[in-house]
Every structure is written in C-alpha cells, then in structure tokens.
Simulated assay, not measured.
Amino acid sequence: MIKRIDIQVREVAEQIYQLQRKSYQVEAELIQFECLRPLVETIEQLRSTEEIFFSYVVKGQIIGAISIERNKTTIDICRLMVDPSYFRRGIARQLLQHIESSTPSIYHYSVSTGAANKPAIKLYESVGFCKQSFELKEGLLLVHLHKYTE
C-alpha cells in the first residue's frame, strides 16, 4: 500500500498536487492561515522539490502521502497529507510508521505544524513526538516536534 514515488513523473505530481490542496485546505481552515506553502505552490514548484515522497494508494488512487528530507542521522518530515474523505482511518499514522520502520539508522525525526492544528499535534504525540519549540513565522505560530529513537 505504501511505496516510494517519483514526483518528477507528471501524472504522479498532478495527483500529489490535488491531494495536498484538499488536505492542506483543511489545515488552513483549522489554523486560520490561508497561505500555507502547499496551497500556494505551483505544480512546477512541487515537481522541482528534492523531497523524497511516499504514497498510500487505494484502488489506484493516491489518497495519502508523506515527503521527507533525509541526512545521515535526521529525517525532516516536510509534508503529510491525507484525502479528507479518508481522515481518521489511520493512514497518516501508517505513513509515519513506514518512514520510521524503513529508516532504522535514523535516530532523530522532526516535523512542524501550525500550533492550532490540534489533530496533527495529537497524531505526532501519539507516535512519540514531543513538542520542543514554538516559532512565529510569517504571521503563523508553528510548533516544532521531535522524536528521538535512541
């Protein structure tokens, strides 16, 4: 169900682009901030990212995805999105767990989200992330969460 995808493939990028617009619109409404990067970036900007993407596919459709940036000891979770019609089915949790289980040499994971995005914060905390800091960036209060595995 979860597999690595190539964001350079036009059809893949189009599916991710549509998915992130639906998913991040829900977050934008929760945190009352309409200028989230996934809502304002173009498909060309999406395709040019160096993030590594994984998808969750149901009946040939990408209904969930996660993207990461990785270095030797750290993974930064850049995007985590699920089609709103599939919310609360454990898909985001499975994507997070897939990243952790497929990167056993990594001991530090980080992610940021809007401080008002209580469902996301609850999800991250439920899989072992802890709030570390807050930052006001471009008018949005962000919370940075981290997880250490060793």
Rank of each mutant, 00 (worst) to 15 (best):
I52E: 13
G64W: 14
S85C: 14
G90K: 02
A65Q: 07
T73Q: 10
C78W: 03
P84C: 13
T73Y: 15
L39C: 09
K22D: 13
Q25K: 06
R4P: 01
K122L: 03
V143H: 07
R4Q: 15
T49I: 02
V12I: 15
A92C: 03
Y17T: 02
M81R: 00
E44T: 10
H146G: 03
S133P: 05
M81F: 02
L80R: 09
F134D: 06
A120W: 01
E11D: 11
Q18A: 15
S55H: 05
I106K: 06
S55L: 10
K59T: 11
R70K: 15
L30C: 00
S55I: 10
R79W: 01
Y86P: 09
K118Q: 11
E138V: 08
L95R: 01
L19S: 13
L46P: 02
D76V: 10
Q20T: 04
F134C: 07
F134M: 11
S23W: 03
L142G: 00
R79D: 01
I52F: 07
Y24I: 06
K122N: 10
D76G: 01
R89F: 10
I121P: 00
I75W: 00
Q97V: 09
K118S: 05
Q97H: 10
R4N: 12
E125N: 01
I5Q: 09
T149F: 07
R89C: 04
V26G: 04
E27H: 06
T49D: 08
L96M: 13
A28R: 07
G114S: 06
C35D: 15
I106H: 08
L141F: 10
V127A: 00
L136V: 11
E29G: 00
Q15M: 05
C78V: 10
R37D: 15
T42S: 15
A92N: 01
L19M: 11
E100K: 12
I52D: 10
A28H: 11
P104N: 12
Q97M: 12
I106W: 08
Y109Q: 08
G64S: 11
S67Q: 06
F87P: 09
Q8Y: 04
G90W: 00
I62M: 09
A120F: 01
K122I: 04
I99P: 07
I63D: 04
F33M: 06
H98E: 09
P38S: 10
Q97Y: 03
F129P: 01
T74C: 12
P38M: 07
V127M: 00
Q94K: 14
Q20L: 05
E51M: 04
Y86F: 15
G128A: 03
I68L: 04
S67N: 07
I66S: 06
H98L: 04
R70A: 12
V58W: 03
Q61W: 00
S126D: 04
H144F: 11
F54V: 05
F33C: 11
G60D: 14
L80C: 05
E44V: 07
E14F: 02
A115N: 08
I68S: 01
I68K: 03
K59H: 14
E34V: 09
S110M: 15
G90V: 02
F87C: 08
S133W: 09
G139A: 05
G64V: 12
Y17S: 03
N71P: 01
L39W: 03
E34N: 14
L19Q: 14
R93M: 04
